[in-house]
Every structure is written in C-alpha cells, then in structure tokens.
Design a protein around this nucleic acid. Structure first.
Lengths: 119, 119
DNA sequence: CGGCATCCATTAAGATACTG
DNA sequence: CAGTATCTTAATGGATGCCG
C-alpha cells in the first residue's frame, strides 16, 4: 500500500493541501481529539472523559496515528499505576486555525442545514 | 436513525461546531468537491474531470447530500443532451475559509508528517 | 490505568452495467 | 450527458475481554 491511500484504490486523492489534511484528520473523531488536545496535555482517560461516546479502541488508533505523523507526542511515566500523557506538537497546534474556521462556519449555518427535507 | 448519527451508535458526536462541520463534510471526497465548486459552477462531468479518481457513484452521493443540506444548488436544464449545473450556495461559499485554513496548515507540514516511520 | 486483540456493524467509495 | 442500481472492498469505529 502506498502511504497516501486514503481509499483503497490506485487513484486516490489529489496532492493538494486539503487532501493532505484529510489524510491525517480522517474520520469524525480525529478532529475532535485534536480539538481537546488544543486545551492542553491530556491523559488517556481524560480524553475518554472529554469525548463522550468514543471507545478506547478508536481513541487508541487515532492517537497512534497522530503520534506516527508527528502531530502528537506520547509520554509514558513508569509509575504505578501507569500514566501516559498526550500533547500536541507545534505542528498539531497549528491546526487550531482550521478548527476555529470550522467552528466559525458552523455558526453561520442557520440550523436548517441540519434539518434537511429527507432526513 | 437519528439525523446526527455520523456513526451508528446511540452516543454519536458532541454538538460543537467542529462536529457539525464533520457531519456534512464527511469522507475524503466531500471537502475536495467543495474545493472545486469554490471556483464556480460546475457541470457533472466537469467535476468528474476536475476530481481524477472519483466515481460517478461517489460524486452523485456527495452532491445529493450537499443539495439536501443547502450547501449546493442543482439546476437541471431540460435540453438535449441534458445539462445539470451545481453551484455553491452562500453557505457553501463560507466554507472557503475552512478550506484555506486546511491548505495553509498543510504548507506548514515539513513533509515529514507524510513519511512516518511505520508507514 | 492504559492499553491491545478479536469480532462485528456501518459506511465511504470503486467497479460495472444500465437508463432517460 | 447525467445519472441510477447493485455488488464488493476497505476502513472507521463500537463491544467485549484480556494483559502489564
């Protein structure tokens, strides 16, 4: 598999900035995790608590991907009980502008976009 | 099914602006379609041509969702051959700020985020 | 506490074939 | 040209159980 296969096929996405963003921030939870991390370092359970509905499985996978791509750092303290802290890298913090833009856009939506005719 | 089930479960996403954005702009192609539409009205085949790799099936589904949620207008001209033009609504055009933020972020990425250690 | 492994449900998306 | 219908694949994401 090539490294840019967001889908599963030979003709994936174009190589624009938007596509690059989408490759790393894929899935509905990914962006929300970053959103929480923007408030500061979080432990695993703190993220679980801050993201009601997310599963440990999903959180683990997203976090690992972020760490792998340099958006997040993972610091494990060899204590009993163990403690692991996730923190955004400078690159991750740059995402604040994108998140803010999303939030700002949602404010312009007159709520009618979320109550479409056909469900 | 409820209208906000991005996933399939009873505890979906929080109701923040970011989540709302994610509900409408889901999947890797959705945002890229909007990106093309920001350049002006497009016919179906023009979008197919502008988005190498996308299938008619996917394009149709994304377009229908956008129209349903008021991000895009669909204008069909009763001609032979038929002509259908898709155009962003003012709400859709507001997304430009988000797309620009994504693009801007991707420029700060030193390309190392796309060549991770473990693939 | 912070995971990981396995199985399973949902869905975005591609391939193909067909219609008005 | 502009779809629609059906089948299939891949990947996110949830549920459960187990481990250090």
């Amino acid at each position: 598999m090539s490294q840019n296969s967001a889908s599963h096929n030979s003709a994936p996405l174009p190589d624009c900035g938007v596509a690059r963003f989408l490759l790393l921030l894929d899935g509905p939870w990914a962006t929300l995790i970053v959103r929480e991390l923007l408030h500061g370092p979080h432990r695993f359970t703190e993220l679980m608590d801050a993201l009601p509905g997310i599963s440990a499985h999903t959180l683990t996978n997203r976090l690992r991907k972020f760490v792998r791509h340099g958006l997040v750092t993972r610091t494990a303290y060899p204590e009993i009980p163990p403690r692991v802290v996730y923190e955004l890298t400078p690159l991750g913090h740059q995402l604040r502008a994108v998140l803010t833009a999303m939030d700002d856009w949602a404010l312009t939506v007159p709520t009618s976009a979320f109550t479409p005719t056909g469900g």
